[in-house]
Amino acid sequence: MKHFKETLYDAVCQEFRIDKMYFESKTAHQHLMIFHNAQLGRVMTLDGVVQTTEADEFIYHEMLAHVPIFAHGNAKRVLIVGGGDGGMIREVLKHPVEHVTQVEIDQAVVDMAIEYLPNHSNGAYQDPRLNLVIADGFDFVKQYADSNQPSFDVIISDSTDPIGPGEVLFTDNFYAYAKRCLTPNGIMVTQNGVPFFQQDEIQTTYERMGQQFADMHFYCAPIPTYYGGFMTFAWGTDDLTARTRSADDLQEQFDALNLDTRYYNPEIHQAAFALPQYVKRSFKPES
């Protein structure tokens, strides 16, 4: 019987039984595996780290997509960096947005996800509002920032961890260029790791991304296969009202859209910004 052992930490690791291997390849960019696990459904790993599973992906994708878009209230243009498995575009395109650009570094991830994780994108790659660009996310925002193309209302960085190809998506320059791709009241959110194990990551992001935004904060959700308790998402915007949308506002939008979510709802939206003390202290030691 084959098992997959995650390689994130030295002293602890989670192990998955591989019930059926669908795909394994070493692409130019990363080592990709998609296999079936009886408990979690299909599991995708990159470079030995779990990226997404069919069983719990909804928590991650709903929270990284719906929180900034509902908070914005009128998002027309959304940029997704990464997210090649297609889960993020699926959730974003449930909103009445006019345009979504997705920049994914690895065509193989998109191809394999369409073939082996079809429920993630659920047809979203066919949506005419989507412009899929295969490019390095950093290069894309850098060029876009200096172009005269229309800004984005929401930027979602759905990246791997800061070791590997996702590395540049956690740099000062990336946040600076991304900021210049945003509308004045635009919102940027990023995947930011599990602070129980990756305390440094939240601190680094707070210092780097915080330089760009008047309101720099984090919100969180527990995703079972990103084990270690809460995962945090970094939140940056110059719109100081965005983080404190009223429950009524959110409820009205949510009802109007008639979303069939499994994790997100307006109460969760507001509550997600409440952070445990150990998380707060990792970026604001005086908390």
Partner: peptide
């Protein structure tokens, strides 16, 4: 070190 971690070596 980064390559090592990406590869999955933690020792």
């Amino acid at each position: 070190i980064r390559d090592g971690l990406r590869f999955g070596a933690t020792t």
